[in-house]
């Protein structure tokens, strides 16, 4: 279970000036085996919250516990152990430039497991076929389109079958058909593995078809936390406007 308690974060501009408050008193709980969708307009603090959950950034105040471990207080060694539970897709994919697609996807298995090379190869091929990239294993990331890179990132994030998976914009840059396939794939895998998933996405139409719960962030604050059905029927003006894509409203 992921539990976030009163988390705040501000960035101080290098040249001075007032701090930029990116998160303010955010509290939320992601139950085990839940597919949690985090939505909100740009610069609402969603990606920063994901990075804090995995311990890549520390909040100025508040605590984040993952399966009972306080990420904000953990040493680098403890964080390293805790991260074995995580898979993550970054907003800009973060593929290793100098490795082929196959090596990128195989990398976590080679580094973190005792699997033989044949088994690793089979798993990589299976992942590639899931994201419709069969035959791309020998290519370098620089030779892929934005959507293809995203799919490689999804394959790498899911190959270890980690119990907690964080996706930052898994469908950005994908066409509607591939996007729907990716969401369905991620949902299927989450159901099969029982993983806890937190997903940030701007593709609300598709996101709302797969999530169990939704949290909406706005200007660094969590303004809504409820089931997907509650989000779709919410009368909170900002949630209603954002979820239904209305041009008129407070946002």
């Amino acid at each position: 279970m992921i539990s976030i308690q009163s988390v705040s974060k501000a960035f101080r501009p290098a040249g001075g000036g007032p701090p930029n408050q990116v998160l303010e008193g955010v509290s939320l709980h992601v139950p085990p085996s839940c597919l949690y969708g985090l939505i909100g307009p740009g610069a609402a603090g969603k990606s920063i919250l994901l990075k804090m959950i995995v311990g890549l950034m520390k909040p100025d105040a508040g605590s984040i516990t993952v399966d009972g471990v306080d990420v904000t207080q953990a040493s680098e060694l403890d964080l390293q152990k805790m991260r074995l539970k995580f898979g993550m897709l970054f907003q800009n994919n973060a593929l290793f430039d100098h490795m082929t697609v196959g090596d990128n996807i195989a990398f976590p298995l080679r580094r973190l497991t005792d699997l033989g090379e044949d088994q690793i190869k089979d798993r990589v091929m299976e992942r590639l076929s899931h994201v419709a990239l069969t035959g791309f294993e020998g290519r370098l990331p620089a030779g892929l389109s934005g959507g293809q890179k995203k799919r490689v990132g999804v394959a790498r994030a899911t190959i270890t079958k980690a119990p907690i998976v964080l996706y930052d914009e898994p469908a950005a840059g994908l066409d509607p058909v591939t996007s729907q396939k990716i969401f369905e794939l991620l949902r299927e895998e989450q159901r099969a593995s029982g993983a806890t998933v937190v997903m940030v996405s701007s593709d609300l139409d598709r996101l709302l078809t797969v999530t169990d719960r939704i949290g909406m962030m706005y200007r660094g604050r969590l303004i809504f936390d409820g089931t997907t059905h509650e989000a779709q029927t919410s009368t909170e003006p900002r949630v209603r406007q954002f979820v239904h894509g209305l041009t008129e409203g407070p946002l």
Binding site: M88, F90, D97
Partner: peptide, 18 residues
């Protein structure tokens, strides 16, 4: 530097690699 700005170092950390 390129690995830092493209979050490749963060990706290593998330993969529990020092």
């Amino acid at each position: 530097g390129t690995m830092v700005v493209t979050e490749q170092l963060d990706a290593l950390r998330v993969l529990a690699i020092d």
